[in-house]
């Protein structure tokens, strides 16, 4: 169920886009074509990080119709658990890796008359695929892209050169802000709104849209949480009858997988609900980090999302 088939790929290009971002190109190691995908999809990249295997999701940013290669962009996170550092430091052209089939948790709503996109920083990547898909079918879109400054605004110049009328850029260092209220007011009926960027931006866009009366189904967002690090803890897996240790820089899901137990997942970022796991017994405190369970469920002690959530205390027994 967690499967979906791995694709063996070779890294064929690594490009430094700016101070923080590198772009990676993957081609099938056997020379064949990769699956077609839809704009907004991601792939899960498997990394063998010196003893720890990491599975990190990254948005596909190449043209969905081009099946000869996939490209992703990775922003270096110096404070993170190391996935992005591994990509930046160790991944070189010629390296063999393995990636998942594409999964789309941020698809375009094809009923929309117009697609209004709001991107912040590295949140630009899923829109790259969506824009390529839309421009091939002459779909109507408008992109508002905010970044710290022009040097850090990845792909901004390419995008505005290609779509001068649709792309609008904003730079924090120049005190430029998206006039969201005005933007939302002026949209034709049937417009769908998409946002991808930092947590604060997503909340701001969703709240502003809600206050302006936008229906929930017309507002789409994508936010992958990176699994946070924390104190190591021990877990008993009741079904597989195993006791496992979750390391400081490892997620509970990764520890379950490392023990050879197959567990469901899609986003690995606390938003899709697939990894939801029943708690059989516990004595301690949950550190819930997901966007899936309700507040009552977080307080209830019956469920945990192992892709991002952790535990502190004596015993934790899971139905897995």
């Amino acid at each position: 169920m967690s499967g979906g088939g791995k694709i063996p790929v070779t890294v064929t290009e690594v490009v430094r886009v700016n101070e923080l971002i590198k772009r990676f190109k993957f081609e099938r190691s056997d020379g064949g074509l990769l699956p077609t995908f839809s704009g907004g999809a991601h792939t899960v990249v498997e990394m063998q990080d010196y003893g720890t295997s990491r599975l990190n999701p990254y948005s596909l940013m190449s043209d969905p119709a081009d099946t000869s290669a996939y490209t992703i962009s990775v922003r270096r996170d110096d404070e993170g658990r190391g996935g992005s550092l591994f990509m930046h430091r160790h991944v070189r052209p010629g390296m063999e890796m393995s990636i998942s089939n594409p999964v789309n948790l941020f698809p375009l709503d094809l009923r929309a008359r117009k697609h209004l996109m709001i991107a912040g920083g590295i949140g630009i990547t899923p829109f790259m695929g969506q824009i390529a898909q839309l421009s091939a079918i002459s779909g109507r879109f408008e992109l508002h892209y905010a970044a710290r400054n022009p040097a850090l605004a990845a792909y901004a110049s390419e995008l505005s050169a290609r779509y001068p009328r649709q792309v609008h850029l904003y730079f924090d260092d120049y005190d430029q802000r998206i006039d969201l209220q005005g933007l939302l007011d002026g949209q034709p009926l049937g417009t769908h709104l998409y946002v991808c960027g930092p947590k604060g931006m997503i909340a701001w866009v969703r709240n502003t849209a809600e206050a302006a009366g936008w229906p929930r189904e017309a507002v789409h967002h994508e936010e992958f949480l990176a699994p946070p690090s924390g104190k190591p803890f021990e877990v008993k897996l009741a079904v597989s009858n195993k006791v496992i240790q979750v390391g400081e820089h490892q997620s509970l899901l990764e520890a379950i997988e490392a023990a050879g137990v197959d567990a469901p997942y899609l986003c690995r970022g606390g938003c899709c609900g697939q990894c939801e796991t029943d708690v059989i017994d516990y004595d301690g405190t949950f550190l819930h980090n997901d966007h899936w369970l309700s507040e009552e469920q977080h307080a209830g002690g019956k469920k945990i999302m192992p892709c991002v959530s952790r535990f502190e205390g004596k015993t934790l027994v899971l139905d897995r």
């Binding site: 999964v103 609900g273 697939q274």
Partner: peptide, 11 residues
Amino acid sequence: LKFLLNIRQGS
């Protein structure tokens, strides 16, 4: 429904 939403390309 959850199973179906989870069905992936290639599987």
